[in-house]
Computed example of a mutant assay.
Amino acid sequence: IMTFTKLNFTMSVLGIVIYVADIAADIWVTSNYFCEGQYSLGILTLVFRLLSSIIVQIFSYEWFKDDCGSPDPVKLNWIFLLHFLHGGIFTRYWFALKDGYQAAFKQNSSGDKLTGGPASIIHKRAIDAVTDISMLKVFKTFLETSPQLILQIYILMEHDKAAFSQYASIITSFSSISWSTLDYQISLRKSVPDKNQFSGVPPKLIYLLYKLFTLTSWILSIALVTLLNIISSIFLLIFLWTLGFSWTLKQHTTFCTSKRMEFLYRTVVGIILIFTFFNVKGEKTKMYISSYYAIHVLVTLGIMCVCLFWKTSVTEQLYFTFVSITIVLTLGLGIICLIVYNMVFHPTIYFKQESASDKVDGLAGEREKEEISRIRNFIME
Rank of each mutant, 00 (worst) to 15 (best):
N196M: 04
K284H: 14
K259A: 14
G302A: 05
K359S: 12
V268R: 00
D183R: 06
Y184N: 02
W241H: 05
E262L: 08
F345H: 02
K140E: 07
Y207R: 00
S221N: 05
Y350I: 05
H159S: 13
F277L: 00
L215E: 01
L51E: 06
F351P: 04
S40C: 10
V201R: 03
Y210L: 00
Y167D: 01
F198N: 01
L333Q: 07
S173H: 00
I295M: 13
Y19D: 09
W28A: 12
L331G: 06
L333F: 09
E36M: 12
V17Y: 04
I127M: 06
T257V: 13
L97M: 06
S233K: 02
Y341V: 04
I122E: 05
K106F: 13
S357V: 09
S110M: 15
I349Q: 02
L227E: 08
Y341G: 03
T145E: 05
L224M: 10
Q251D: 13
L243N: 06
A96N: 06
F263K: 15
L212T: 00
V47A: 05
R376S: 07
I336S: 10
F59W: 05
K311H: 11
C68M: 14
I122N: 03
A168E: 01
F309C: 11
V340E: 02
S191V: 03
R374K: 12
T141N: 00
G244W: 00
A24G: 12
P118S: 04
L81K: 10
A223N: 04
V314A: 02
I153C: 08
L81G: 07
I155W: 14
S313N: 12
S290W: 11
P193K: 04
S109C: 15
S199G: 07
L51R: 03
L44C: 10
G87H: 06
L114V: 13
Q148E: 13
R367V: 09
T312R: 14
F351K: 09
G87W: 02
E144M: 06
K106D: 15
I238L: 11
K284T: 14
V323D: 02
L44Q: 11
A364V: 12
G117P: 03
S313P: 11
W241V: 04
F245V: 07
I295D: 12
S246Q: 11
A223Y: 04
F95W: 08
F59Q: 02
F198A: 00
L333C: 08
L149P: 01
N377V: 03
S357A: 10
I177M: 00
I372M: 06
A103C: 03
D160S: 07
S187F: 10
K369R: 14
L51K: 04
Y319F: 10
I170C: 01
